[in-house]
Design a protein around this nucleic acid. Sequence first.
DNA 1: ATCATAAATGATTGCGCAATCATTTTGCAA
DNA 2: TTGCAAAATGATTGCGCAATCATTTATGAT
Lengths: 332, 332
Amino acid sequence: MPKPTLVDVGREAGVSAITVSRALRSPEKVSETLRAKVEIAVKKLGYVPNQSASTLASNKSSSIVVMVPSISNNVFTDVLGGISDALHGSRFNMQIGYTNYDSQEEERILRSFLNPTPSGVIISGLEQTDETRQMLENAGVPVVQIMDISPKPIDMIVGFSHDQAAETATQHLIDSGYKNIGFIGAQMDPRSLKRLAGFKKAISDNGELREQCIAVTNKPSNVRLGATLLDKLTSQFPECDAVFCNNDDLSVGVLFECQRRGIKVPEELGICGFNDLGISSETVPSITSVTTPLREIGRLAGAMVIGEEGAPSTPIVDLSYTISARESTKRT
Amino acid sequence: MPKPTLVDVGREAGVSAITVSRALRSPEKVSETLRAKVEIAVKKLGYVPNQSASTLASNKSSSIVVMVPSISNNVFTDVLGGISDALHGSRFNMQIGYTNYDSQEEERILRSFLNPTPSGVIISGLEQTDETRQMLENAGVPVVQIMDISPKPIDMIVGFSHDQAAETATQHLIDSGYKNIGFIGAQMDPRSLKRLAGFKKAISDNGELREQCIAVTNKPSNVRLGATLLDKLTSQFPECDAVFCNNDDLSVGVLFECQRRGIKVPEELGICGFNDLGISSETVPSITSVTTPLREIGRLAGAMVIGEEGAPSTPIVDLSYTISARESTKRT
DNA sequence: ATCATAAATGATTGCGCAATCATTTTGCAA
DNA sequence: TTGCAAAATGATTGCGCAATCATTTATGAT
């Protein structure tokens, strides 16, 4: 038997199709008895609404488009989890696009996702192409940029300042007594570059910035890369006594490499990571990291994009970060 | 201006709407000149096909539904990455559902995802409700179960045997000279239970299985939990000299706890993890783990569900796992 | 009872596209 | 040139639903 339609349900319940539609979409607008009859008919026939037809007829889909650079990056799985939380129980579902850190790809994917128009868009970062921004503005739906912060978002934005977070973390290393601080970074996307900028600012403000204190790569980040980059850093910058890492994969990798090479942490080398992904607090010694509100970003973005009550009333939400000072920077 | 439709493009190109549709969907069926004209018109108007209308008219959507228990579990991000790889460049897109390890929730989500009928379904595990299996069979589309293995899949299946993998890993511990081997597990879903069964079998085959050698919880897994469960295990099973961990989060947590408590690995305690998620090979000492083909599962499932050439020809694909023996079990 | 008003329900139409079938044009052998 | 198959293009229709407007029924004040 073919899938039942609204007409079938109507026939079963002895009412017209449109009444069934109403009973399902706005139960408060139909009488109690009728609502009950419809419910029974729906159950009996196993009726499930056809999304496409609904979207086509009403010209609005119930999906929230989420654009992230990567799925394998733990940072974004946390954010997606937050969005998922916010959308759970609402009538909206999530449609995820992976841009692979490529603005052109982002534009391409988003273009196809915007027809039919979704109910809202959540998009990572500030670096959309002009075309993309144009599309988003024309779409006439709520748009929430996430991860970063800016005074002029496309529509709304929730995130935090990567420069400031990195600057504060670097200052923490300086305050802990380290003199020759290096920077290790992978996957140098725009937010990573901002972290580098924040690092440079803190160093410059406290003395002289030397180019050899920076070891970065554009490869995707992983634990092993932390070891590789520490090698590179210590060979080009032997007097290095602390490292600020772009993210926690790297900082963990650095710690392990220190253990292998017999470098004492925090005495001979201080280590600070970024994002505080859960393992940093568990290693021995535990690793200082910048705790960022990833899940909260997702949750707020979700709430904002669907206009949920309880969502922030301002379109710009600058969340705080905290330095979780741990053993890896505790020089006595 | 409103979004252009096929009719608009047709008018612009001086042809009928249906010809435009054909030019876009099966370019080989229209003349070269016309194809060019249509292409120009499409570019000029910025035409993007309306998915809903297309789906409604053709009664087939171009999405592949993927059901996974959780997004924050690294295991599934790897698998999703593999599926994403397989689908990239094809005309199919991915629609992801999170079941949160709940069969009823899975059934509910899947029901809504099946109308309109997608082009295929990829679903984790074997434990679907009868209703769910029924729905999937009725849908008449390719279904690929993943992660586990079974002689009678709903349609197709790609995975590996969790019992066997765990049994082999436990045997590796026995062969390494450990005498009192414990089991640590979190998030005891059906596959975890199979691993436990494999563990028990290996132990029983080599002596006597004692209940106190097992410490498990249903909480979601994380690194800290490894430490907690090691505490529990060593208090109920003090003579324990090796642990097989349900997954790598736990094994890493166990290693760190050993470092904190001054337990020598691998001399006083051997450690073996599961899934080999990338950090196990980097810790000091490195941790033995069961390397499982997560990304490959995703890639094959993707290829199988879209019937890509290069996909396996058999509906049941039992992938291999390997024991990556590392320092944490190298008793000299 | 009468009427006014609101609440409840129904009929019609079109969203944008693709399936189907109909028609026109092209290529080319005889 | 003619004829005919094959290729190219077009016209019509309906997918399932929701918006809009029309109609019926209930409610209640006088």
